[in-house]
């Protein structure tokens, strides 16, 4: 857990992201670009869960609640104000504020583990059934009809200084990619800051962290709130990628998938959940285009196989292998004896 990549290894990643951002619209078709925007939104959702689960040990089954709330807040605010930049800020604020509220409710009640999972899952399902019920003209916030099962339309992003200049799909892709990249590096910075290190300490041993004088509840709450804000931002991107917000954003399938991305990509890394989200997204659309195997069969097997055989996930396993290969080259000859010595040590 907590694989820390040195600063030297971060800049190639940033360069890769920038190169991808510059090249993709030149090479790829428009349809693929629009799809990519959705995938990026999901990756950001994955990153938010990877942050709070991997670095705070908070197993949130309903990260989708902040995602959905962010998307709805964006759509409603944009329809009311006509200005989308304010709407983006509103969406992030709503995601973070609700996370703070729910987090206060849970962490200060010392709810943890499975119980925390149960509460968050329930909360997202509550929103799912409540929002599905809001069809009809009486359910509206300002000018925005909530639209029940069919959801409501999400106005596309505009330039901050000119609300008539609607962004084209290519420009939307630039925005989404920059948001993801900046969020990723923000999270890396956060996990290396003092705050992030204390969060990791709380994750490893809550009692010990408290005995050292840190209020575990506050640190968890802070991390959870940041995760909620990120998920809210992901909701904004999702609303823009799809063009509508629907109750499905709160539903079980997205909630389950977010968990799968983190498991597959790797708990305790930040790049893992992002790659996991992209991978599963394209696996999804590939499987959706053929009739041979049912999608759920594959997703289920992937989850089972990873939990049983690769509990660390892809990113840490790959890093392990790479590190071992590097080391192996240097001292291949001396390998055997130290290993046997290790095996002789008593197990803990």
């Amino acid at each position: 857990m907590g694989a820390e990549t040195g600063a030297g290894r971060l800049w190639p990643l940033g360069a890769l992201a920038v190169a991808f951002m510059a090249l993709a619209p030149q090479v790829l078709q428009l349809f693929t670009i629009i799809n990519l925007t959705t995938a990026i939104a999901l990756a950001l959702l994955g990153l938010s869960l990877g942050l709070i689960w991997g670095y705070g040990g908070i197993l949130c089954f309903g990260q989708t609640v902040f995602f959905g709330l962010g998307a709805y807040a964006y759509a409603v605010a944009a329809q009311n104000f006509g200005d989308t930049s304010t709407a983006v800020l509103v969406a992030i604020a709503v995601g973070a504020a609700f996370a703070a509220l729910l987090g206060y409710f849970m962490f200060f009640g010392r709810v943890s583990d499975v119980y925390l999972g149960a509460i968050t899952l329930t909360v997202t399902l509550v929103f799912f059934s409540l929002i599905r019920r809001t069809s009809g003209p009486e359910y509206k916030i300002g000018d925005a009809l909530l639209g029940g099962f069919n959801g409501t339309s999400a106005p596309p992003l505009t330039l901050p200084w000119d609300s008539a200049a609607i962004l084209f799909p290519n420009q939307l892709f630039y925005v989404a990619m920059s948001a993801l990249t900046l969020s990723y590096f923000g999270c890396v910075w956060l996990t290396r800051s003092r705050f992030g290190r204390v969060c990791a300490a709380v994750r490893e041993n809550e009692t010990r962290a408290e005995l050292l004088g840190y209020d575990a509840r506050l640190y968890k709450l802070g991390l959870f709130t940041i995760g909620g804000g990120l998920a809210g931002l992901a909701g904004v991107l999702m609303a823009n990628g799809v063009g509508r917000v629907t109750p499905d954003l709160f539903g079980l399938p997205y909630a389950a998938q977010a968990i799968i991305w983190v498991i597959v990509g790797g708990r305790g890394t930040l790049i893992g959940p992002i790659l996991g989200a992209f991978g599963i997204f394209y696996l999804n659309s590939w499987l959706g285009s053929q009739q041979l195997v049912n999608l759920n069969v594959v997703l289920g097997l992937v989850l089972i196989v990873f939990v049983l055989l690769l509990p660390q996930g892809l990113a840490p396993t790959a890093m392990d292998l790479a590190a071992r290969a590097m080391r192996g080259r240097g001292r291949a000859r001396r390998r055997r004896r130290p290993r046997r010595a290790l095996a002789a040590e008593p197990a803990e």
Binding site: D113, I263, N294, L295, V297, G300, L301, L303, I304, V307
Partner: peptide, 22 residues
Amino acid sequence: RMIDTLLATWGLSLFLIGAVTT
């Protein structure tokens, strides 16, 4: 490993839904 069982059985749930649909 409570959390891991939770996740594995969630995978099993998806798998069973898919298998029965097939």
